[in-house]
Write a protein that binds this DNA or RNA. Structure first.
Lengths: 342, 342
DNA sequence: CACGAAGCATGCAACGTTGCAATAGGCGCG
DNA sequence: CGCGCCTATTGCAACGTTGCATGCTTCGTG
């Protein structure tokens, strides 16, 4: 029986056509060594003629692997997460994996659903950039599926962890602003209610730099936000400018916040950087083409992606299965553009 | 045997614990009607106690479905495709599907690889936003897996097709520019070498509007681009401004091109919209927060996503299996902001 | 010439699930 | 009281693949 029409060919069909056993075809497909050259050629031809493609469901069932890696991020269309997701898709592809993206919309419920949901047997590995949940909830991850945590929210040994040095980065940015002559540096982006501790670290780095320069810390210049979107940055800048003695520099904890802040400053007729310097964080593409070009912290996103997949590969294929969780710090650099110039 | 430790529970384990057959557990899991209420309750309890989750690989193998939909777009991190991908992920999720995103980087090779690659048996359905390939290559799609084509490149019956009326949209935008007093309208974004015919349609719409207003068409004001990115928009604007008699309005075929164009105009000390009006296409978030706010064409992206999944659902589950391919036109609207104001 | 090794090919079983057909028990009706 | 029908439950087989063990050659060596 040749299984006519559009029905997908199976190993059995190829075997019949090539006049060998199913097992031999399987050996050819999986590049097993013990196959005679002419047999291999004959099988290859049959495969081409029938357009055979392995049935992944069957392979997965047999091997207990799916070839799928899950990624949970707050939203795909945000510039930062979009760029990161794109890099992760490529990195996964290079390793023969397929990346599957889940959006959590920054909701704790959906983040937890991702961690406990399909994980158990649909995915070979998972990566999450947590937003609402923190260390406590990540620690509950019981290891069934390898997990990599991106960004803050230290899983404390419950999973591998890829980060940048947020404290140092914020320190560098703050120092840059102070060294270029700014005296009242505001911070936009603290998020006191979130599990994700990123903002707290950046605030700490900023405080360290202020202290090192002998400046006092003015709590009125630290504006919390509900999200890292442009609209929040715009609102925050508005509040700062309405303040009795407004800042001459604003350090936003994301480029999007910074773009919103710049928008509001310009809307009010202020010059950036003349009247107020604005700096961001993430180095998204928009920042490069904004006027003025946005000064920012640029994390090596490509290395974040590479490290994430390396961690997963080590746990899925390697013998690092029961080694203690790793913590990988990816480098970053300060990119100075016009928005903080003189 | 209870399969201790972290090993995933199977139907068999649940069955033993609940004192029923494997088949009955399966019936409970799939909400089959013929199960006595107390049996159902007992099985449910066992499921919870063991933390049972169905093994999708096995289910897929048995049913011939995977629950996966593939999406191929040029790049995730572009604002337009990022927003679209996010909406599609949500729409798929609502229908119990998982969307898997493939990046083609606008390469014909990778687009074709997507169409013929894993499709045959890993995906329940596919959607592609073609860039380099055109009608000819799409027509070769032989229907194994349901396919939806997004944007131009009419598959001519080989697949369902979701579009906006690019000709009408470009006509509306051009008329808007002419009506607000502009006389020399340039077009940035034609892509003569591409299979994807979107740019050609927008150019046609523009010509129609020019003709309707009794204007002549100046080929020197039509600038081709290699991509739809900001950098290309910037370059194109540079070329137009170096031209002997520069335009007083520039219609860019994407918002990103427009943002690049605005950047270059401002860099040269020109006022937008005072000296030159700039309009885009796509209505990406950046355009809303740019200064000046970007006039654009806003396609109903949510409807594109919804229609795409509706088409796929009809073919995968429904009885529309062998109905002729559909073509769905999604509405759009002209959004006037400051970049074309007076 | 016999024997082991090496190279190649094969058959069987199992992964966890669900479609199909069949069974056991309960009930109403003739 | 017995027949048939309906409900609840069950067993068997199969989806397409690969791990394991084994069989069949052929060749080299003592």
């Amino acid at each position: 029986m040749g299984r006519g029409g559009g029905v997908a060919a199976r190993l059995k069909d190829v075997a019949e056509r090539a006049g060998v056993s199913v097992r031999t075809v399987s050996n050819v497909v999986s590049n097993a060594p013990a196959v005679a050259p002419d047999t291999r050629a004959r099988v290859r031809r049959a495969i081409d003629e029938l357009g055979y493609r392995p049935n992944l469901a069957a392979r997965n069932l047999r091997q207990g692997r799916t070839g799928l890696i899950g990624l949970a991020i707050p939203e795909i269309h945000s510039p930062y997460f979009g760029e990161l997701a794109g890099l992760l898709v490529e990195a996964a592809r290079e390793r023969g994996w397929t990346l599957l993206i889940e959006q959590t919309a920054g909701s704790a419920e959906r983040e937890l659903e991702f961690l406990s949901g399909r994980a158990s047997n649909t995915l070979d590995g998972m990566a999450i950039s947590p937003w609402a949940i923190g260390t406590e909830q990540l620690r509950r991850h019981t290891g069934g599926t390898p997990l990599v945590v991106l960004g803050e929210s230290d899983p404390q040994g419950a999973a591998d962890h890829v980060v940048i040095d947020n404290v140092a980065a914020a320190r560098e940015m703050t120092s840059h602003l102070l060294e270029s002559g700014r005296t009242r540096v505001a911070a936009v982006g603290s998020q006191p209610h979130l599990g994700n501790g990123t903002a707290a670290l950046r605030l700490r780095g900023m405080h360290e730099a202020l202290a090192a320069a002998g400046r006092t810390i003015d709590p009125a210049l630290e504006v919390p936000v509900a999200s890292l979107h442009r609209e929040e940055g715009r609102r925050a800048m508005g509040r700062l400018l309405d303040h009795g003695s407004p800042p001459d520099a604003v350090f936003c904890f994301s480029d999007e916040l910074a773009l919103g802040a710049v928008y509001e400053a310009k809307r009010r007729g202020l010059d950036v950087p003349g009247d107020v310097a604005v700096a961001g964080f993430d180095d998204i593409e928009d920042g490069r083409y904004a006027t003025p070009g946005l000064t920012t912290i640029s994390p090596r996103k490509d290395q974040i992606a590479a490290s994430t997949l390396q961690c997963l590969a080590d746990r899925v294929y390697g013998r690092l299965d029961h080694l203690p969780a790793r913590r990988i710090t990816v480098p970053h650099r300060l990119v100075v553009r016009e928005s903080t110039g003189r």
